[in-house]
């Protein structure tokens, strides 16, 4: 992640000679307005961000049940979680679905962006069309795809049946349920990422390509040797955003399981977010849910770091 904090403007011109009071005001304005402008964010974040985080940590140290019955446990919830196969299964599912949804999504988005970067008619129409899924509400997507993936009468199994494939029970196995859920995520976000990549592609100077062309590089070679390396910051950014989205996946698998938080009969596609929900609001074990929430945060941090270092390598040593 690159971070440009604007370099402070160089020498400030001296303000015109004002009256005393105005000078004080203006001095204050220069000194303080930065803080004033960022204050609303930090104030609200303290209430609705920091406080819940700290409170979550507090709750996670307790056996905290419905009706506020609580006993202090220390780190017992964490110990139990770490040795709970259900938790690790949810972690595995979350990472698996994340990988299955992010990698194809970003590759497809790159391909789409590359295609959109050509000389084309109806550019706005094309761009709007591939952005269309992004504005579809998430529950709608999940409901529609669940129906498409239905075992006995779903369109996808019917289509596969034309090629002699037996009906697949998509919820039944890890691989099939992961694919189904990942496809919902892919469908919604590929176009959006493609547009972001397209924007970045258009900032790449043309003469770089022209020079490569003169050297006899094929379009494919140019794509891999020029386009992808130049897009690296943008790719890192999209991976970063997908990481947060992917690790908190909830609505799609929830509705794919008919509104239950189990993630299939054997937890085939139970994500960590579903586990938190289930523990806290189906079994009313708030402490356990809170502990799982903190571990989810830790996972996101690790995931972001891993993805960052992976994404940095894209395009080699450029």
């Amino acid at each position: 992640m690159t971070l440009h904090v604007a370099a402070p403007p160089a020498e400030r011109a001296a303000p015109p000679p004002p009256a005393r009071g105005r000078r004080l005001l203006s001095w204050l304005d220069l000194r303080a307005s930065g803080y004033v402008l960022v204050a609303p964010y930090f104030l609200l974040f303290a209430i609705f961000g920091v406080f819940p985080l700290v409170y979550t940590a507090w709750v996670s140290l307790h056996d905290w049940e419905l009706a506020g019955d609580k006993t202090f446990l220390g780190l017992e919830n964490y110990g139990y979680l770490i040795s709970d196969p259900v938790f690790w299964n949810a972690v595995l599912n979350t990472i698996g679905i994340f990988a299955l949804s992010t990698v194809p999504q970003l590759v497809l988005a790159l391909m789409l962006a590359n295609a959109l970067n050509k000389r084309l008619r109806a550019r706005l129409f094309l761009r709007l069309s591939i952005l269309l899924p992004m504005v579809t509400s998430v529950v709608a997507v999940a409901v529609v795809f669940s129906q498409l993936y239905q075992r006995d009468y779903g369109l996808i199994n019917w289509f596969l049946g034309l090629f002699g494939v037996d009906n697949i029970h998509w919820q039944g196995e890890k691989w099939s349920s992961w694919i189904a859920i990942a496809s919902m995520v892919d469908w919604r976000w590929t176009g959006y990422n493609a547009i972001i990549y397209l924007a970045a592609m258009q900032t790449i100077p043309r003469d770089v390509y022209e020079a490569a062309e003169l050297d006899g590089a094929s379009p494919r070679r140019q794509f891999w040797q020029i386009t992808v390396p130049m897009l690296r910051p943008t790719i890192i950014f999209t991976v970063f955003v997908s990481t947060i989205g992917g690790f908190t996946l909830f609505a799609e698998p929830m509705i794919f399981d008919g509104g239950l938080a189990d993630g299939g009969t054997d937890g085939q596609f139970q994500t960590v977010a579903m586990l938190i929900y289930k523990e806290a609001f189906r079994e009313f074990d708030y402490g356990y849910g809170a502990a799982a929430a903190w571990l989810l945060f830790a996972l996101i941090l690790i995931g972001a770091l891993v993805n960052y270092s992976l994404a940095r390598r894209i395009g080699g040593g450029k």
Binding site: F48, G49, P52, A290, F297
Partner: peptide, 12 residues
């Protein structure tokens, strides 16, 4: 990176 929706769900 804080998944507020999930992290904060219990205390909120």
């Amino acid at each position: 990176m804080v998944p507020l929706q999930q992290m904060g769900v219990v205390p909120l």
